[in-house]
């Protein structure tokens, strides 16, 4: 390790207020994109499954299915 103690590491030898927010924002945005894409996929597939069930109940009305999932 490049630091003498764990306290020095957290303090970044005085540069903590610059280093940690930079890492938090950049890596945080990566995590946010990853999570959001997985959550959205689940939501979209659930929506498609609901469309399928609705049409199975009313076979005559399929026009609604041509609308896009928002």
């Amino acid at each position: 390790m490049a630091f003498d103690s764990l306290a020095d590491f957290w303090a970044m030898n005085g540069y903590a207020v610059y280093v940690w927010p930079a890492f938090a924002v950049v890596l945080g945005s990566l995590v946010a994109f990853a999570l959001a894409s997985v959550v959205e996929q689940r939501r979209l597939l659930r929506h498609v499954a609901a469309l399928e069930r609705r049409e199975a109940r009313r076979p005559g009305r399929t026009a609604a299915a041509d609308e896009e999932v928002s």
Binding site: L30, R46, V48, E52
Partner: peptide, 28 residues
Amino acid sequence: LFAAVTIARTRNEIIRRQPSARWVRALA
């Protein structure tokens, strides 16, 4: 991660644009 995020978001867009496609229904 850029590749993964872009591919995952493209896949979502495919589902969003063709929710009536038979293979998308099978997927759901």
